[in-house]
Each structure stands twice: as structure tokens, then as C-alpha cells.
Nucleic acid binder design. Structure first.
Ligand SMILES: NC(=O)c1ccc[n+]([C@@H]2O[C@H](COP(=O)([O-])OP(=O)(O)OC[C@H]3O[C@@H](n4cnc5c(N)ncnc54)[C@H](O)[C@@H]3O)[C@@H](O)[C@H]2O)c1
Ligand SMILES: NC(=O)c1ccc[n+]([C@@H]2O[C@H](COP(=O)([O-])OP(=O)(O)OC[C@H]3O[C@@H](n4cnc5c(N)ncnc54)[C@H](O)[C@@H]3O)[C@@H](O)[C@H]2O)c1
Lengths: 213, 213
DNA sequence: AAAATATAGATAAAAAAATATCGATACCCT
DNA sequence: AGGGTATCGATATTTTTTTATCTATATTTT
């Protein structure tokens, strides 16, 4: 029914950072890791990490730690990042271009296969090896290609109509970077990225810091 | 001491969305709002909103709601967004350009006054009316201009050294978009923006949705 | 005017998340 | 080999956040 709550949100949000650090450690030739080390890296308490990792089902070895390979695997499974998700991006503007150029997504099982835009001067262009198509072709193309994730980067005023087209095209997961709270059917999940949230947190932190010294 | 925890994080993160919606309502000529309306917009329960607003110190009128103007003001004060914060941006690459071009920051009391980069082909350029300076001038300039916020958008491998330069230049708040956990003195606050966190949440949501229908 | 409805605030309860404690296991160093 | 240290897992506790309940106040409808 679309309104089920996702639990353990804070833990889920930390997973990608674990993954990143673990991959880096593996590249450096390590094969085990302790929560103490992860904790120091992330500025958290070891117990937090242990609880998070518990969610993935891995078990560590008392006195030793966890096997890095196992952990990487378990986190990927937990996040469902083993089978790469194909996505389309809507709105090849300044944010859209940045996301199209972001190398990191490979590591996160995300593959942006095409972009869509309404601006004739952008349609037909290629950005980082992905073609930009006319937004009107979106429903037809996503249906045919069976894509079920859309990354929304259009200006606020077009956000809802773009979302409607995605829904029409069978997309059921929307990563929403606009400042608009979308109205979508129950079976469609939306993750809204509010960049100002981070700024708000930083402002409050800074303020508190200044008050105490 | 830098390791004090910020409380009410979830509430703080919701504030900018309230602010955005409230400003929009004001533009539409409204002057009061109820938590029911806000809740419908944000897909939350009214009680959540009421608790959040309580933090700002505003009081509403039973049977009526809150005064929009008062709310906007209270939220801005709460976030310390009344006095515009000046910031510099480090790394005028694809993400950096997007941020430099983002209009939304005006509303959030953030003013990016200059950018810094190491690439000679970028130094001297102007992006959205902000000049790009040589990264080596950062410490001197931020000291002189008394800027205390830095937005970090360099490639991961240069993140720490760029952070060091910021600290040298007297910056004490870093908005960190890199995939690196920075090592900074206690008096410097850091807010790390991990874009993959949102993707992780979306993946889990999508997975749960698919399992239940 | 009375009844129905919508609302905030205060307080209480429940749920979730973070943190602590402790025993068992492994490793390291002398 | 033995003592010291690091580690995990299980369980318990504390803290924080979310949600519920109930009362008083305002508005709208009849
Ligand atoms: N730029 C940033 O750093 C940033 C940060 C956070 C959030 N955002 C949000 O992301 C969204 C996009 O921002 P931006 O700065 O990239 O804007 P932009 O104007 O640079 O890009 C928007 C793109 O969408 C295209 N477009 C317009 N209408 C369209 C439609 N109906 N269908 C398809 N494409 C359409 C435009 O042609 C343009 O290419 C906005 O909602 C903004 O608030 C941007
Ligand atoms: N592109 C995205 O959508 C995106 C999303 C999330 C996070 N990030 C992160 O943001 C960071 C930047 O990503 P990007 O895609 O913009 O990379 P980019 O390569 O496009 O831009 C990096 C910029 O930093 C400059 N630079 C390099 N070394 C420097 C130094 N020592 N001092 C100052 N400037 C220096 C480069 O010249 C370049 O202009 C990375 O850490 C990336 O992981 C990017």
C-alpha cells in the first residue's frame, strides 16, 4: 500500500559508507576489519557499527573482526545492489549533468542508461556516453526497456508532470532531487533528496559550536 | 569540543521543506496554515509537524493554526538563516558547477562568494558570476574575507589536503560532498553529504514494495 | 443558538535507536 | 606458556523519537 515505513533508516544510510571504506581497504590488501577501525573512520562508536552489520546477517569472529569480502557481499545483498539497477535521468541541466558524470554510481549498482530533456538544444546530445532523448519519448522508451527507476532533475515547476510521465512509463522508483513533494500512486516509491537539509544541519552544528567556545 | 551531538536531527532536516512550502503559500496569499495541510503535503502525520514546530518556539492557535509569517521567521531563526552565511566552494568540477548554479541557496541564507580550483584551465574563469581562484590562494583569501564556511567538491583523493587548507584559512564549517571522512580539528564542524545514502534508502524501499505486491 | 468539525497544546505511551555490560574467543608480546 | 589486550555476540539499559490521547478553543454548518 505504499505507506509502509522503512525501518532502520539510519543504519541503511550508513551502509554505503561502510561499503566504500571496505572496498578501499580491500584494494589496500587487507582482508579483515574490526568495528573499532570502522568506527574511528566514521566518527562513531564501535557498537553502532556492530549493530548495523548485524542487520546484514554477517557474523564476525570474536577477537578478530569481520572478513572484508563477506561484509562487502552482505551489504550489497542487504541493499539489493548485486543486480545493477537501470535508471533514466530526467532533466539534463546542471545537476543532471553532474549526476550523469558521477563515477561513483558504478559502485552502487546504478546504471543510468539514458537522459531525457525538453530543451531542443539538448535533445540528441551525448553526455558522458548517454544520449539525451526528447522527454515525450519517455513513457514509450521506459516501457519498452523495462526500466523502473527514474532520477528527477527538472526545475520544480515541471516536477509533477515529469513524474506523471514516469509513472505512465512504468517506473516505480523515483529519486527526486526537486523541491517538490510528488503525488504518485501507492505502488511507486519516492526518495526525495533535499539538499538544504544538510545545510540546515550544518548551520545548527556551527551555531552550537560557536556558543560553546 | 567538537563531539557534542546535535539532537533532533530528523526535525532539523525537515525544516527547510517547511520553509519552502510556507514561502510558497505566502506567495499565494495565504496567512495561516494548519499542521494537517503541511502533513498532507509532506506525507507525514500532523503530530510530527506539531512537534517539529514546537522546537522553533512558535505557538499556534487551537482551532485555527499557525501564522505563516511568524513560522517562516521562527524557522529561519532556529536554523540561523537570518544572517546570510558566506561560503567558498572548492572544486569547480561537475558537482561544483551545479552548486554554483543553484538558485535555491538564496532562500537558505547561503551565499557562495568565490570558487577555488587547482586546474589552470579553470582558474580565472567565471561561473555564474563567481570567479574561480587558484586553490593556493584559499588560506589567504578566506582569512582576509572572514569566510567561515567551505563547500568541498574536489575529487576524493584531494579532499583531505583541501580540508587542511580550509582549516588553515580559518574556516570552521565544512560541507563535504566527497566520499571521504575528513580529519579536522575539534573546533571545525563537518557535514558530510553522502549521495549514495539516498539511493540505498530508495533501493530498500523498492525491494520492500516489490515483496508486498 | 446548538451541533459538528478542525485545530493546537499538554501529557502520556510506544517504538526505535543508541549505548552499556559482560562473557567468550582470538591474538600478541614477553 | 601466560598475561595483557582486542574483539564479537548476546542481552540489558538508556535515550531519543514518534505516535496517541485528551482537553480547550475556534470555526463552520444546520
Ligand atoms: N543545481 C543544483 O545544485 C541543485 C541542487 C539541489 C537541487 N536541485 C534541484 O534540481 C532541479 C534541477 O536543477 P538544475 O540546477 O539542474 O536546473 P537546470 O535548469 O540547470 O536544469 C533543468 C533541466 O531540465 C530540463 N527541463 C525543463 N523542463 C523539462 C521537462 N518538462 N521535461 C524534461 N526536462 C525538462 C531543462 O531543459 C534543463 O536542462 C531543481 O528542482 C533544483 O531545485 C539542484
Ligand atoms: N558529480 C556528482 O554528481 C557527485 C555526486 C556526489 C558526490 N560527488 C563527489 O564530489 C566530488 C567531486 O565530484 P565531481 O564529479 O564534481 O568531480 P570533477 O572531477 O568533475 O570535479 C573536481 C574538480 O576539483 C578540481 N580539483 C582537483 N584537485 C583539486 C585541488 N587539490 N584543489 C582544488 N580543486 C581541485 C578539479 O580541477 C575539478 O574541477 C567527488 O568527491 C565526488 O565523489 C559528486
Amino acid at each position: 500500500m505504499g505507506n509502509k515505513k522503512v525501518q532502520k533508516l539510519p543504519s541503511i544510510r550508513r551502509m554505503p559508507t561502510y561499503l566504500h571504506k571496505l572496498k578501499q581497504m580491500r584494494k589496500n590488501g587487507l582482508d579483515t576489519v574490526s568495528t573499532t577501525i570502522m568506527a574511528r573512520y566514521m566518527n562513531l562508536e564501535p557498537i553502532v557499527i556492530r549493530k548495523d552489520l548485524e542487520l546484514t546477517g554477517v557474523t564476525g569472529q570474536p577477537g578478530v573482526g569481520y572478513k572484508i569480502d563477506e561484509l562487502i557481499d552482505a551489504i550489497k545483498s542487504f541493499l539489493n545492489w548485486h543486480n545493477t539497477a537501470e535508471a533514466v535521468l530526467i532533466g539534463a541541466g546542471s545537476l543532471g549533468r553532474a549526476l550523469l558524470g558521477y563515477e561513483g554510481f558504478e559502485d552502487y549498482g546504478l546504471n543510468i542508461i539514458a537522459a531525457f530533456d525538453a530543451d531542443p538544444s539538448k535533445i540528441g546530445a551525448e553526455i558522458n556516453e548517454r544520449e539525451v532523448f526528447d522527454i515525450n519519448r519517455l513513457p514509450e522508451m521506459t516501457t519498452r526497456l523495462q526500466v523502473n527507476m527514474g532520477i528527477l532533475c527538472v526545475p520544480n515547476e515541471f516536477a509533477q508532470e515529469a513524474a506523471d510521465m514516469m509513472v505512465e512509463g512504468g517506473i516505480n522508483a523515483i529519486w527526486n532531487f526537486t523541491n517538490v513533494s510528488l503525488d504518485v500512486p501507492d505502488h511507486v516509491v519516492v526518495q526525495r533528496e533535499v539538499i538544504a537539509s544538510g545545510l540546515a544541519v550544518l548551520s545548527v552544528k556551527l551555531n552550537q559550536q560557536m556558543l560553546t567556545d
